[in-house]
Write a protein that binds this DNA or RNA. Structure first.
Length: 805
RNA sequence: GCCCGGGUGAUGGAAUUGGUAGACAUGACGGACUUAAAAUCCGUUGGCUGAAUAAGCCGUGCCGGUUCGAGUCCGGCCCCGGGCACCA
C-alpha cells in the first residue's frame, strides 16, 4: 500500500497544533536555542517553492535541537507594511489592512502545510496596533538620544505622478510605473544618525559567525578610510578650504583643487569673469540624475573658479575648480587633486592641461598613467625617499605640528533616510508645534493611522495623511490648533528592525519585551534568510540593537550571533523563477501531489543550502519515491507493519550502518549540510531494504533521526511501532565509536602514488605487517618487481604507498 | 575598475587534517514482472584503447610548483555568479 501523505500529514499537523507541541517555554532550566527565519512580506501571489527553502532548513535544525534537549524558540510572523498593498489600495480602494489580512491568511496556510514546528502562539504582525506601539516607542528612544533629526534631503520626485518614489520604484531615472521622468528635489525628511554608529557597527562584525561575504559587504558599505584633513588657505576670501585625503604623503603633488558644484564656498570663490561659466555648469549638474553623474568612464568636465589656494606644504598657488566628479556628501566635498597618483585626477588634469607632478617613484617598467603603487617619495622635499606608510606618518605629524591639518577617519556610510510619503506605514510620533518638532509622550502610543478615503499621495509630495486635516491638526480643549502631526510614515525596514525581540514576549502590553526573558533568549543563535538582505535589513537592525544596548534595554550588543544565507531555487530552465518566464513552481501543487515531506527532503537534497540550484521535477519524484520505498520496507501490502520487525536479533552490519548514519547526520547537521543527511537516510534505507529481519530498536533510532526532515512520516512510523511518547522530545541518539568500523578494513595500495591494488587488513594491524601484505599482493608485485624500493608509507587505516625507482 | 564567491560525469551534487575522485539521486541503457503500459524490483553507466564485469592510459577550468601522494596547499592565467562603483 502506498504512503498516503494527504491523510497522514493532516493528522499530525492537527496533533501538533491541538497540543501546542512546539510551544517554547518562556524561561526554562534547559539551554535555549533561538532559531529565526527572515519573516516574509505577505504578497498577493503567495509562495513559490524557493521561499520555504530557508524555512525547511531552520525547521530541521529546530527539531534537531529539541531532540538534543534544547528549549527552542522558533517563531514566525509577518512583515506586513509595504508598498504593494498600498498600490492595490490606490487602484481599488480596498484598505491595505484588508488585503494584508487576506494575504497573511494565504501565506499562513501555505507555510503550515509544510509541517513547520513554529510556536504559532508567538505569531506577530508588524501592522498590529500593539506592535506599532513599540516600533514607535523605539523611534522615541532614538529621538531622545539625538539620533533622529529632520533635514532637507533630495527625494525622487515624479511630477507626472505627483508622488515621491522609493529608490526601488525608480528605474534608469524613470518611474517604474508609467516611465515618467523623476527628479531629485529637496524635501523635508526624517533621518536617523546611523553614521554615529559606524565604528560600533564595524567593530561588532568581528565576533559574529556570519558568512565572510556578508561581513565584507557590510564593511565595504560602512567604508571606513583613514587619512588626514588638510587645510588649504585661500587668500582671496581669508578662509581655509579643508579636504580629506587618504594620501597625505602625496601633498607635494597637489597641483589643483576641485570642489563639488554644491559646495558652499563656490559662490564667493567665483571671480566675475568666470561667473557665467560656473553658473551654467552648476545648473547643468543639478539637472543630472545620480546615475548620469556616476556614469562610468565618462569624460571629466569642470570649470575653473578663477581663484587660487595655497598648498600648505610648499606655498604654491594652485587653481580651484568645480567638477561633478567630486561629491558633496563624502568627506568635505572638496579634494586636493594629485594627478600623478590618482587616475581620476590624472584624467581631469589631461582634459584641462593642468600640471602633473609625480611624488612616488613608479616601479620599473611602469607604463600607466597615475601611479597608485608602492615606492619611494620623490619631488617631495623632506619626504623624499620615504615609502608610502612612513611618508604618511611624517607628513601627518608635520601638518599637526604646523596646525594645517589633522588625522581623520571618513565613512562612506550615510545617514538613514527614515521617512516615506506613504499611508501604509507606522506614523512617526511627532507633533510640529511652532515649527519645531515635539515627540509624543510614551503614554500616547500607539499613534494609529486614520481612516482615509483616498490613498493617493497629497500631490504636494506629502503623504496621503496630509489630506486628513482632522488627524493632522492637534487641538487644545477649546478647539485651537496647537500643532500639526508629522505626516510622513516609517519605511518598511522599521518593523523588521526589532521583530526578533517581540517574539520573545509577544503578548507584553507593558513593555516591548520583558528583561528577564530577553536575557534568557538573546542573542538569536541562528538566523537564516536571503542574501538580498545582506546590507540594509541586517545593518539597520544591528544599528537599532546597538542603540538599545547602549540604552540598557537589551543584554547583548549584537542581535544575530550566527547568520546563514540560503541560495535561490531557479526554475527548471536554470533561470530565476518569474511569472513572465513561466517557470514558477508552485508549492501547493507539489505538496498536493507528493506531500510535504517529499518537498522538504527534495529541497534539502538538491545541494548545499547556500547555493543557487535549478528545480527538477524528476529529482522531486526521486525523493517521493524514496519515502514510498521506506514505507514499503516497513509495511506490507495491506498496510500492516511487516512481521520482519522483531525485538531479538541484532544484525551487526545493520547496527554498524545505523551508527555510521547517526554520526554522519549529526556532524552534517551541525554544519548545516542537509543534502548529505538525506543521502545518509537513503543509504541506510537501501541497506535495510533487503534484510529479512529488522530490529525494532534500530528502527526506532532511525525514526528519531529522520524526524527533523520528514516529521509526518516519522510520527506515523513512531506510532505504528507502538510508541506512545511525544516523538518531538525523544532524545537524539549518540553513536558508539567502537561500532563505526569493522574489524577488517580495506586499504588501497599505491605504487609511486598510483593505485595498484587493495588489501584487507585488521584495523589494528601493525605497520610492518600491512606493508608486508601490500608488497606481496600480486597486483602490486607486478609493479615493484625488479625495482628498488625507496620508501614505504602507511597511513593507518587509509593508504599504503610504495615508492620505487 | 575594485571587493567577495565558485568552476568535479549527460544532470544536481559527494569526498575529516592533502590519503581509493565521482557517495546519494536524476537521466540513459539492459533485464524481471505485465496482454501492454505505468509503478516496482535487479543490473550497467567518467572518457579512451579493448570481445571483456582482463589489463592499461587519461581525467576535478588552463599552465606551472610543493609533496611519497594534490579536487584539496602555493604562484600565474581563463571563465561564470554576486556586490560596489568618480568615496578622494
Amino acid at each position: 500500500m502506498a504512503y498516503d501523505h494527504k491523510q497522514i500529514e493532516k493528522k499530525w499537523q492537527q496533533h501538533w497544533e491541538d497540543n501546542h507541541v512546539f510551544r517554547a517555554e518562556d524561561i526554562s532550566d534547559k539551554p535555549k536555542y533561538y532559531i529565526l527565519d527572515m519573516f516574509p512580506y505577505p504578497s498577493g501571489s503567495g509562495l513559490h517553492v524557493g521561499h520555504p527553502l530557508g524555512y525547511i532548513a531552520t525547521d530541521i535544525i529546530a527539531r534537531y535541537k529539541r531532540h538534543k534537549g534544547f528549549n527552542v524558540l522558533h517563531p514566525m510572523g509577518w512583515d506586513a507594511f509595504g508598498l504593494p498593498a498600498e498600490q492595490y489600495a490606490i487602484k481599488t480602494g480596498t484598505h491595505p489592512a484588508v488585503t494584508t489580512k487576506q494575504n497573511i491568511g494565504n501565506f499562513r496556510r501555505q507555510i503550515k502545510m509544510l509541517g513547520f514546528s513554529y510556536d504559532w502562539d508567538r505569531e506577530i504582525n508588524t501592522t498590529d496596533t500593539e506592535y506599532v506601539k513599540w516600533t514607535q516607542w523605539i523611534f522615541l528612544q532614538l529621538y531622545h538620544k539625538g539620533l533622529a533629526y529632520e533635514a532637507e534631503v533630495p527625494v525622487n520626485w515624479c511630477p507626472e505622478l505627483k508622488a515621491v518614489l522609493a529608490n526601488e520604484e525608480v528605474v534608469d531615472g524613470k518611474s517604474e510605473i508609467g516611465g515618467h521622468p523623476v527628479l531629485r528635489v529637496p524635501m523635508r525628511q526624517w533621518m536617523l544618525k546611523i553614521t554615529d554608529y559606524a565604528e560600533s557597527l564595524l567593530e561588532g562584525l568581528e565576533d559574529l559567525d556570519w558568512p565572510h561575504s556578508v561581513k565584507e559587504l557590510q564593511r565595504n558599505w560602512i567604508g571606513r578610510s583613514e587619512g588626514a584633513n588638510v587645510d588649504f588657505h585661500i587668500p582671496a576670501i581669508h578662509k581655509d578650504l579643508t579636504v580629506f585625503t587618504t594620501r597625505p604623503d602625496t601633498l607635494f603633488g597637489a597641483t589643483y583643487m576641485v570642489m563639488a558644484p554644491e559646495h558652499p564656498f563656490v559662490k564667493e570663490l567665483t571671480t566675475p569673469e568666470q561667473n557665467d561659466a560656473v553658473a551654467s555648469y552648476i545648473e547643468a549638474a543639478s539637472k543630472k540624475s545620480d546615475l548620469d553623474r556616476t556614469e562610468l568612464n565618462k569624460d571629466k568636465t569642470g570649470v575653473f573658479l578663477g581663484n587660487y589656494a595655497i598648498n600648505p606644504v610648499n606655498g604654491n598657488e594652485i587653481p580651484i575648480w568645480i567638477s561633478d566628479y567630486v561629491i558633496m556628501s563624502y568627506g568635505t566635498g572638496a579634494i586636493m587633486a594629485v594627478p600623478g597618483q590618482d587616475q581620476r585626477d590624472w584624467d581631469f588634469a589631461k582634459a584641462f592641461e593642468l600640471p602633473i607632478v609625480r611624488t612616488v617613484e613608479p616601479s620599473d617598467g611602469f607604463d600607466g598613467e597615475a601611479y597608485t603603487g608602492e615606492g619611494p617619495a620623490i619631488n617631495s622635499d623632506f619626504l623624499d625617499g620615504l615609502y608610502v606608510e612612513e611618508a604618511k606618518s611624517k607628513i601627518t605629524a608635520w601638518l599637526i605640528e604646523e596646525g594645517k591639518g589633522e588625522k581623520a577617519i571618513q565613512y562612506k556610510l550615510r545617514d538613514w533616510l527614515f521617512s516615506r510619503q506613504r499611508y501604509w506605514g507606522e506614523p512617526i510620533p511627532i507633533i510640529h508645534r511652532d515649527g519645531s518638532p515635539s515627540p509624543l509622550s510614551e503614554d500616547d502610543l500607539p499613534l494609529l493611522l486614520p481612516e482615509v478615503e483616498k490613498y493617493e499621495p497629497a500631490g504636494t509630495g506629502e503623504s496621503p495623511l496630509a489630506n486628513i486635516s482632522e488627524w493632522v491638526e492637534v487641538k487644545d480643549e477649546s478647539g485651537n490648533i496647537v500643532g500639526l502631526r508629522e505626516t510622513n510614515t516609517m519605511p518598511q525596514w522599521a518593523g523588521s528592525c526589532w521583530y526578533y525581540l517581540r517574539y520573545i514576549d509577544p503578548e507584553n502590553a507593558e513593555k516591548g519585551w520583558n528583561e528577564a526573558k530577553e536575557k534568557y533568549w538573546m542573542p538569536v543563535d541562528l538566523y537564516i534568510g536571503g542574501a538580498e538582505h545582506a546590507v540594509l535589513h541586517l545593518l539597520y537592525s544591528r544599528f537599532w540593537h546597538h542603540v538599545l544596548f547602549d540604552l540598557g534595554y537589551v543584554s547583548t550588543k549584537e542581535p544575530f550571533q550566527k547568520l546563514f544565507n540560503q541560495g535561490m531555487i531557479l526554475g527548471q530552465d536554470g533561470t530565476k523563477m518569474s511569472k513572465s518566464r513561466g517557470n514558477v513552481e508552485n508549492p501547493d501543487e507539489t505538496v498536493d501531489q507528493f506531500g510535504a515531506d517529499a518537498m522538504r527532503i527534495y529541497e534539502m537534497f538538491m545541494g548545499p543550502l547556500e547555493k543557487a540550484k535549478p528545480w527538477s521535477a524528476t529529482g522531486l519524484q526521486g525523493c517521493a519515491r524514496f519515502i514510498n520505498k521506506l514505507w514499503n520496507v516497513l509495511f506490507n501490502e495491506d498496510g500492516q507493519l511487516t512481521d520482519k520487525i522483531n525485538d531479538d536479533s541484532v544484525d551487526e552490519h545493520t547496527l554498524r550502518a545505523l551508527h555510521q548514519m547517526i554520526k554522519k547526520v549529526s556532524d552534517n547537521l551541525d554544519q548545516l549540510h542537509f543534502n548529505t543527511c538525506v543521502s545518509e537516510f537513503m543509504i541506510f534505507t537501501n541497506h535495510i531494504q533487503s534484510k529479512k529481519s529488522l530490529n525494532r530498536e534500530i528502527l526506532e533510532t532511525f525514526i528519531i533521526c529522520i524526524n527533523p526532515f520528514m516529521p509526518h512520516l516519522a510520527e506515523e512510523l513512531w506510532k505504528a511501532l507502538g510508541k506512545e511518547t511525544e516523538l518531538t522530545y525523544e532524545f537524539w541518539p549518540s553513536y558508539d565509536k567502537s561500532l563505526l568500523e569493522s574489524d577488517t578494513i580495506t586499504i588501497a595500495v599505491q605504487v609511486n602514488g598510483k593505485r595498484r591494488g587493495e588489501i584487507n587488513v585488521s584495523a589494528e594491524a601493525l605497520e610492518e605487517d600491512v606493508l608486508k601484505m601490500a608488497k606481496s599482493n600480486e597486483k602490486v608485485t607486478a609493479f615493484i618487481k625488479g625495482k628498488e624500493i625507496v620508501k614505504e608509507i602507511y597511513v593507518k587505516g587509509r593508504i599504503v604507498n610504495i615508492v620505487v625507482r
